[in-house]
Amino acid sequence: MKIVIADYGMGNIKSIISALNYLGADNIVVSADYETLKIADKIILPGVGSFRKAMIQIRENNLDKYLEELAVENNKPLIGICLGMQLLGTSSTEDGFTEGLGFVNAHCIKFDNTDLKVPHVGFNQLKTDSESKLYAGLPNESDFYFTHSYKMVSENEINQSYCHYGSDFIASFEYNNIVGVQFHPELSQKNGLRLLKNFIEKF
């Protein structure tokens, strides 16, 4: 099992690697190289920071083209984590309107309810589907760790699960082989480890 973490210079890669190591995955490579991504069994798209800056760096590294070919055209399992998930959508209004990778039909906007503390930080519960592969073995309303100021929303069916903060927003989606999680599974204790294990084993 070869897992490649797509490297564009943004993201807390170390926590992801230590969680994968804990689960017994030892062939983990951090790279933006096409040939390396091509032979991966799974690809992880991490991300912390600004959407606009991330897209600039992704394009500079040609990761937009590589990921489109490998994940969209050739169905290689891909998981986007936190900002990495948001990048898989069509756009975000963070730091001005910016187009995303557009692999799923959903977009990101700021939490706008003035009664809410923003960023949304801490563990929050999810409404999940019992048919989900990603949440296999995890009860509905399981807790996962979030930290973000922008949320993903969509009118479309992308096999999403929801979290509630002021209103419902997309906590995750399992769109065929393309998965996104707004929360940080690598920082979500045993629940997060189980979810990563599910991604490795079931996708």
Binding site: F123, G137, S142, D143, S188, K190, N191
Partner: peptide, 9 residues
């Protein structure tokens, strides 16, 4: 109101 992580891995 604290998170639970009772799942078995």
């Amino acid at each position: 109101n604290l998170a639970n992580w009772n799942v078995n891995n």
